[in-house]
Design a protein around this nucleic acid. Sequence first.
DNA 1: ACCTGAACACCGTTCAAGT
DNA 2: ACCTGAACACCGTTCAAGT
Lengths: 213, 213
Amino acid sequence: MARPRKPLLSRERIVAAALALVDAEGLQAVSTRRLAAELGVSGPSLYNHFATKDDILDAAADTVIDRVDLSVFDDGTPWADALAAWARSYRAALAAHPHIVPFLAQGPGRRPAGLRQADAVFGAMVGAGWPPAHATRIGATMRYFVAGSALGSFARGFVDDPDAYDPRDYPHLGQAHLLAEHRRQVDDGAFDTGLRALIDGLGLLYAEVVAGA
Amino acid sequence: MARPRKPLLSRERIVAAALALVDAEGLQAVSTRRLAAELGVSGPSLYNHFATKDDILDAAADTVIDRVDLSVFDDGTPWADALAAWARSYRAALAAHPHIVPFLAQGPGRRPAGLRQADAVFGAMVGAGWPPAHATRIGATMRYFVAGSALGSFARGFVDDPDAYDPRDYPHLGQAHLLAEHRRQVDDGAFDTGLRALIDGLGLLYAEVVAGA
DNA sequence: ACCTGAACACCGTTCAAGT
DNA sequence: ACCTGAACACCGTTCAAGT
């Protein structure tokens, strides 16, 4: 049919279809031909709107990050509570699209939402009295923890096959295979415990660096 | 030449060559044909020793994790110091092979070293008096943080092209493009700050959960 | 400007054939 | 048992051709 009078595709439609496909069938289901088929066009058509396949996935990942709630950094919430609320919103945004997390992990790429996030955290921490160098590190630290927990949690977990390991090799993990079942609870618990420890630890540092001196 | 009298390949040789190739040229340089060429054989030969390409990369990743020093969990080091030493050794092991980190992030797969690690941490924390549920969470929390920081640090960082973002979009990150340059320092600082906060926060929790009650 | 089919240079993996 | 070349069913991407 060659060129239609009204474009069949748009960046928005492509990104939405890519994210839907990732959600439904996982990252490896996304090939340019498959994605194009999903959109009712042929493979090369996508290259009229994006330079590469990775750019498409970057844009999809950006829409995920863009749903993270940053309003707590702007509404007078105390810094420690704001960090905790942000971390929970961040985790929830990733949990809503677990299959794209491993792609996100491959590097920030060209994703403006990540920068907006870094900017909001940095501004709020400096506003709360943290020295700029600390503000940068705090934002990064929280990202590390949330990203790491998302990977550990949502990326497929421990081997489900109990025969995969001999309990004698892991004296303390006698029922380790149960972890596959109870994984979600372990992960949620670890996230809560770690988040609390991080925030409390930063509170101690704040007393020393900002309130003290 | 068909079958040689002495095998040309072994799992060890394949894994070593795979890790060397990942280190030298990155994950995407590893194709079965390329890896086989590096070993002086043809592509399909690898399938006599591994079922899939991912199994090869899993084995390579396992050798990386296997270099993490777990001795601090067995030599009477106080639990908090042991956790910190382990985290630093873990980070150092990943930093030595930065290009394999994104693969590691795709899930634990079949990597016994990861289980040995979880077992050692769990055993030491329980030995220090932590309730088992907490011991599990602490191990996971630390893994989240180290893995997240490795991804944030070693996976290629912020966009290096200053034109990629308009400073007006990120009011607090005026010289954000400098982050590319100073990234290593920021990452190391964030790791130190985060690790300290985590350990200190866990210390508070310990006082409440174990020492108190 | 935006879509198409054909084509290029790859992939991971299977398999029959060789020793 | 362990290697080979040929083959299958794919890839991401380019490009000339069509409107």
